[in-house]
Every structure is written in C-alpha cells, then in structure tokens.
Amino acid sequence: MGGWFSDRFGARKAMYGTFVVMAVTSGILMMPNGHVVIHQPDGSQSEHLAYSMGVVPFTIVLFLLGCAMGVGKAAVYKHIPEYFPDNVGSVGGLVGMLGGLGGFFLPPLFAYTKVWSGFPSSTFFVLFLLTLVCFAWMHWTVVHMLHRSSPELSDHFEAPNASIPTRTEPAVEATA
C-alpha cells in the first residue's frame, strides 16, 4: 500500500503527507483526555469542552499512525534511487541502520519521558516532536539538494505533467 502512494504521487509528496498524518495523529494521542480551563478576570475559573477518547477511537487513531509510518517507510526507499542513484546500496544500508537505532533508542526515551512527566501519553509527544524535526530536516535537505543541482528544475521535480523549462543560450550577433 505504501509503495502505491509513493509510485502514484511521488516520494516527496508521500513523505509530506506521511509527516502531516503522523503529526496530527500523534498530536491527538498525546492529549487523549482533557478540558479547556478559562480564567476569569475576577480570579475564578471555569472548565468547558471536556473531552475523552475511548478505546475504539484511540485504536483507530493509533492504527492511522501506524499506517502513516508504513507509507513513510515505502516513500523513504523510493527516495533513495531518486536522490542517490550511484549509492543505492550504501544509502539503503545507512537508512536500515538508522531505523534499527531508532528501535534501540526510542523505547528508553519513551520510558524516561513517562517517568519525567508522569503521563503515559508522553510517548506520543516524543513522536510528535520527532515528526516535526524530521519533516523540517527532510524539507530543508531536499530543497537545498534540488537548488544546488539544478535551480531551474526545483519547482518541477516529481511533477510528471509539468513543462520543464529549457536553458536558452543568448543569441550571438554577427558583427561585420
């Protein structure tokens, strides 16, 4: 399924969509219960809009988060041959190694944030922050790679129907 999104819309658009879905779902999951507190000018306060997420909605949003991660994984492996055509094997190995390190470092980080904050949902706050950092890093990296290699094509990358501008040489006038 994730490969279909990457093939149909392009790896970059699939990754942007993945980051948006991951940010929204982890943002929802990091605050599954709560209410709005309004502080009045006289010093009193009132609580409004209490909300609570049950098991079924929580499971559905968690499932969407997992699906977005799967689509993102497929999009990452579609990025590799597009951006690093001469180093597919080494970059793929590096991506796999970083994925393995994520599985090594994130569980203790989740546990430390739970102990530090006292909230079990702090795990999703870590995912939310990590998603935002990775989104910004990927966007900055891709934009700078495109601008450096061919600035005239930076707006046309992964747009199959876009007309690609051609470079025109200035006309040389013959002098007599």
Score class of each variant (00 low, 15 high):
Met1Pro: 11
Gly2Asp: 05
Trp4Val: 14
Phe5Tyr: 11
Phe5Met: 09
Ser6Met: 04
Arg8Asn: 12
Phe9Lys: 02
Phe9Glu: 03
Gly10Tyr: 06
Ala14Ser: 14
Ala14Cys: 06
Tyr16Pro: 00
Thr18Ala: 03
Phe19Asn: 00
Val20Tyr: 04
Val21Ile: 15
Met22Thr: 12
Gly27Gln: 06
Gly27Glu: 07
Ile28Gly: 01
Leu29Ser: 04
Met30Phe: 05
Gly34Pro: 10
His35Met: 07
Val36Asp: 11
Ile38Arg: 08
Ile38Leu: 12
Ile38Trp: 08
His39Cys: 00
Pro41Gln: 03
Asp42Trp: 02
Asp42Leu: 03
Gln45Cys: 02
His48Arg: 13
His48Met: 14
Leu49Asn: 15
Ser52Lys: 13
Met53Gly: 08
Gly54Ala: 13
Pro57Asn: 11
Phe58Ser: 12
Ile60Arg: 03
Leu62Met: 11
Leu65Gly: 05
Cys67Asn: 08
Ala68Thr: 11
Ala68Gln: 07
Ala68Ser: 14
Met69His: 10
Met69Ala: 12
Val71Gly: 02
Lys73Phe: 12
Ala74Val: 10
Tyr77Leu: 06
His79Asn: 06
Pro85Ile: 03
Ser90Lys: 14
Ser90Asn: 09
Val95Trp: 04
Gly96Phe: 07
Gly96His: 05
Leu101Val: 15
Leu101Cys: 13
Gly102Ile: 10
Gly102His: 07
Gly103Tyr: 11
Phe104Asp: 03
Pro107Ala: 05
Pro108Ile: 02
Phe110His: 03
Phe110Tyr: 08
Tyr112Thr: 03
Thr113Arg: 00
Lys114Val: 13
Pro120Asn: 12
Ser121Trp: 06
Ser122Val: 07
Ser122Asp: 07
Thr123Pro: 05
Phe124Glu: 07
Phe125Glu: 01
Leu130Met: 06
Leu132Ala: 05
Val133Met: 07
Cys134Arg: 00
Trp137Ala: 14
His139Gly: 05
Trp140Asp: 08
Leu146Cys: 01
Leu146Tyr: 01
His147Glu: 14
Arg148Met: 11
Arg148Asp: 14
Pro151Trp: 10
Leu153Glu: 12
Ser154Glu: 15
Asp155Gly: 13
His156Glu: 12
Glu158Lys: 06
Ala159Asn: 11
Pro160Leu: 14
Ala162Ser: 13
Ile164Val: 15
Thr166Glu: 15
Glu169Tyr: 15
Pro170Asn: 14
Ala171Trp: 13
Val172Asn: 12
Val172Trp: 14
Glu173Leu: 15
